[in-house]
């Protein structure tokens, strides 16, 4: 786990859609800090600093050394980035949840799983490597939190898979997922004939939007369409 990143935060008075929108336009991001020992605090952080902290890692599992200015007093604490909301179109950070943690307190996080190497089944037999579980739910101390978990998949053949229980995680990290869940699997290559048939189907589909399917409304109407036109003219 990389060391905690310094971040300056300020108390936030702006609440609600309008004021928070103006806050975002001024280059600040609304945030909230919560934890077991203290009440939740509304904060604002500089968007540029937050981007540098969150997007500099492969996951959004980031530890922050927060330096908060709360009115006339300031407070320092360690926080874990619990959740980041993004704008679906622009990708800008809209809001961030910060979870106050202690160094000796275990936290739960989702850590990305990455594959290492090319499986034999893919290289030799043209199989498809499927990454079925992309994140592991882990519990550990903040200092032990891995940035990512890498799994060597080079030995996988077609039809074989790697389960959660077979993955070696760093010391001090406990996996909370069920051990029987498949993480990586190599599937057999799909059959070529599937391609030709849908192409014809598409052409038919273009000619008549909903040719024949029982029960569905437009399908039922498709057969009656000429009659409906005839009646309409009258």
């Amino acid at each position: 786990m990389a060391k905690a990143i310094d971040l300056k935060a300020y108390a936030r008075a702006a609440k609600g859609r309008g004021p928070v929108g103006r806050l975002r336009r001024s280059g600040r991001v609304p945030a909230v800090l919560y934890g077991k020992r203290t009440d939740a605090v509304s904060l604002e952080v500089a968007e540029k600093d937050l981007n540098a902290a969150v997007h500099g890692t492969s996951s959004e599992n980031v530890l922050l050394d927060l330096d908060m200015e709360l009115g006339d007093k300031s407070r320092k604490t360690t926080a874990f980035v619990q959740h980041v909301q993004h704008d679906p179109v622009t990708g800008r950070i809209l809001h961030v949840d910060l979870h106050e943690i202690a160094a000796n307190e275990k936290l739960k996080a989702h850590v990305p799983v990455r594959s290492l190497g090319e499986p034999i089944g893919v290289k030799t037999f043209g199989g498809i490597l499927e990454n079925i579980l992309r994140e592991l739910h882990v519990e550990c101390l903040p200092k032990d939190l891995p940035d990512r978990i890498e799994v060597d998949v080079s030995g996988l053949n077609v039809g074989q898979s790697i389960h959660v229980k077979e993955i070696a995680v760093p010391d001090g990290v406990a996996v909370l997922n069920s051990g029987d869940v498949v993480v990586f699997a190599v599937a057999a290559p799909t059959v070529a004939e599937e391609e030709a048939a849908p192409a014809e189907g598409a052409a038919e589909g273009a000619a008549g939007a909903a040719p024949a399917a029982e029960g569905a409304a437009p399908a039922a109407e498709a057969g009656q369409a000429p009659e409906a036109k005839g009646k309409g003219k009258g």
Partner: peptide, 26 residues
């Protein structure tokens, strides 16, 4: 869709096709 060259009224047209409503970000 309403049949072509029909006057207004006489109810809603007949179902012609299906759509998925796609919003920015989908």
């Amino acid at each position: 869709k309403r049949p072509p060259e029909t006057r207004m009224g006489k109810g809603k047209g007949s179902p012609e096709f299906w759509v998925a409503v796609v919003r920015p970000g989908t």
